[in-house]
Design a protein around this nucleic acid. Structure first.
Ligand SMILES: [Zn+2]
Ligand SMILES: [Zn+2]
Ligand SMILES: [Zn+2]
Ligand SMILES: [Zn+2]
Lengths: 169, 169
DNA sequence: TATGCGTTGAGAATGACTCTCATCGGCCCC
DNA sequence: GGGGCCGATGAGAGTCATTCTCAACGCATA
């Protein structure tokens, strides 16, 4: 995937949900007063390019380097944090605290592979509504609940087809 | 709380759930071939003594030092990991990846305070069953779900009564 | 007393992440 | 068309929770 110059206003076919294209996101970035530098374009493209698999900052940095050789880990972290603050990407905290980044704008859950640690997007079922309702019923004198987070774990496609499905991680 | 010598076989009134006393847990430790050293006793007592509030390794170390001055952070981590492997304590990963330890043997959820980061035990509602059912319905060609984890967030008692309920953390 | 082995304390190492600071690169004004 | 301004960057140092290494220790058993 190459980093195009900007795609100002141009609309491609909608991939997943609203504002999912690289161009749309770069536009959002600039609309809020931030420069769409080559590094930022490359980093954003790297996250988008990962698809359903969520990527660590280091992976993003590696992929981005292929598009813009000057990107650096510090810039990658800085940019990912900026994109997170702007709501363009999401940072999901993986089992042991390491973070992975997700560019899927649709509401969805995450599944962590017990074998290889991959974090993949999962379609959202009806859980959200139930949790929302349940959450309101969770009245506790010592804690006022205002939100929740669910995370599934299991085995990713690659590990399953390789027969590696017994680890503890 | 003082660290008693062993309480071999002695049964006290059940506090919360099965095997919740210090003595019971030390017994379980020894039954599996590990020595109940003064350090291990102190560390276990420190986790137990925290009650509903879950404690970090560093906090455990501090509390344990009061009972056995020679405990050290490395031993604390080692022991907590051992106790986790034996199912005597549970390690819950708090928002940004730091871990806190929980000795409550009953099935329950955890709530993280958005203001101060405290992790407290929450009674389990009917959510578990719903999630269980939903989890089975979550068939995805790219991921085989085998379990889930829910985490609530909100404001703890202390922060609420101090009027600190607006942070982003 | 000598041997063995599980356990420990101190400190070094790790690894993800953040900070600092000198430098870079457009951009506006003269 | 040169100079200053300021956001953005790269390199490297710093932070912090956690883990590793290794010599020393405690306690059992011969
Ligand atoms: Zn996997
Ligand atoms: Zn996602
Ligand atoms: Zn609080
Ligand atoms: Zn708990």
């Amino acid at each position: 995937m190459a980093v195009t110059t900007a795609g100002r206003g141009r609309r491609r076919a909608v991939a997943r949900g609203t504002g999912a294209t690289l161009a749309d996101r770069l536009e959002a970035l600039e609309r809020q007063g931030y420069r769409a530098t080559p590094q930022r374009r490359a980093i954003l493209a790297a996250v988008l390019g990962a698809g359903r698999i969520n990527v660590s900052a280091e992976e993003v940095c590696g992929r981005a380097k292929a598009l813009c050789p000057t990107v650096n880990l510090a810039t990658t972290y800085r940019t990912l944090d900026l994109l997170k603050r702007l709501g363009i990407v999401r940072r999901v905290t993986y089992g042991d605290g390491r973070g992975v980044f997700c560019a899927n704008p649709d509401p969805h859950y995450h599944g962590t592979c017990l074998q290889c640690g991959a974090v993949v997007d999962l379609p959202r079922g009806r859980i959200a509504d139930v949790l929302e309702r349940e959450q309101r019923g969770l009245t506790d004198p010592a804690f006022a609940v205002v939100g929740h987070r669910v995370e599934f774990y299991g085995y990713c496609d690659a590990c399953r087809s390789a027969g590696r499905t017994g680890a503890i991680l």
